[in-house]
Design a protein around this nucleic acid. Structure first.
Lengths: 144, 144
DNA sequence: GTAAAATGTAATAATATTTGTTACAGTTAA
DNA sequence: TTAACTGTAACAAATATTATTACATTTTAC
């Protein structure tokens, strides 16, 4: 039997989490509810709360429960880079996935995944290196 | 009603197509069958023929039908870059997808997709620029 | 104290996407 | 004329993503 090992970046999580953080950074010192944020992204509030859970685990966000609850940024927006955000949501490689089970009897099949790994890690480095230079703060300032 | 606009890179197509082309380049002048290639990747031969169909459309590959049929590279392996291959199979952005339907009433929701587009096109440029410098020929030579 | 409006989270359902498979028509060489 | 291919449509299965429901818990305001 075979475990599934490689979920992918075929999703909107980077866009969603960046959206959430951008709103929080843009409303410093104000508690925003998951419903309010969800209304801006136009997705289900439960999805927003799930992502906010991870952001709290990372220590970037705090929540307050109860009637006037909500979420607020805890880390300065200058201290969060887009590479940090990418790292949080990334679960696949830029160039997609490898084929598992390539044939070890074949000269190509035997080594292809090692060669691919070289490409994957280099492209990963390029993307992360670029995103590392952009802070959440700088990103949000573009909106004004 | 809503058309679906944005399929994704949550797949093994780059790995698969590169594997196919690597085998063809590694067996210059020999007709390889889809079954043979599929046996190296360990996927269904029909999937291989589907990709080979696209490679023929691009003019990189020719096929021969009938009993001793198969596929052969038509373009010199030095004339194909990994960026070409990436361009052929790429159908999503490196950083994933945007949320459609963001709220135009919200300062963030209104502009987020334009800002994301900037990130997407820059990362795309980084990745393609790197892959453009690697030819299929150079890639295959690494295997020996 | 009780109602209203939040968070937190599990469980499940609905969609979307990718991959695999079956089937068969057409082609070519021996 | 059979065997072994390509080409492709149609369908099925597996996997991934997103949405939804439900409800326990928390907190404020009245």
């Amino acid at each position: 039997m075979d475990v599934y090992l490689c979920p992918d970046m075929n999703n909107t999580r980077f866009a969603t989490v960046l959206h959430i953080l951008a709103m929080l950074a843009d409303s410093e010192g104000v508690w925003l509810s998951s419903d309010w944020i969800a209304g801006s992204i136009n997705i289900n509030p439960v999805m927003v709360r799930k992502e906010l859970g991870l952001l709290q685990d990372r220590g970037w966000v705090v929540s307050r429960k109860g009637k006037v609850g909500g979420y607020m940024l805890q880390t300065p927006a200058k201290g969060i880079s887009l590479a940090d955000i990418y790292g949080l949501v990334k679960n696949t490689e830029v160039l997609g996935r490898k084929n598992r089970h390539t044939n070890p009897q074949c000269p190509i099949g035997k080594d292809i995944n090692r060669q691919l790994e070289g490409l994957f890690s280099h492209t990963e480095g390029l993307v992360s290196g670029y995103l590392r230079e952009i802070t959440l703060d700088a990103f949000v300032k573009q909106f004004h």
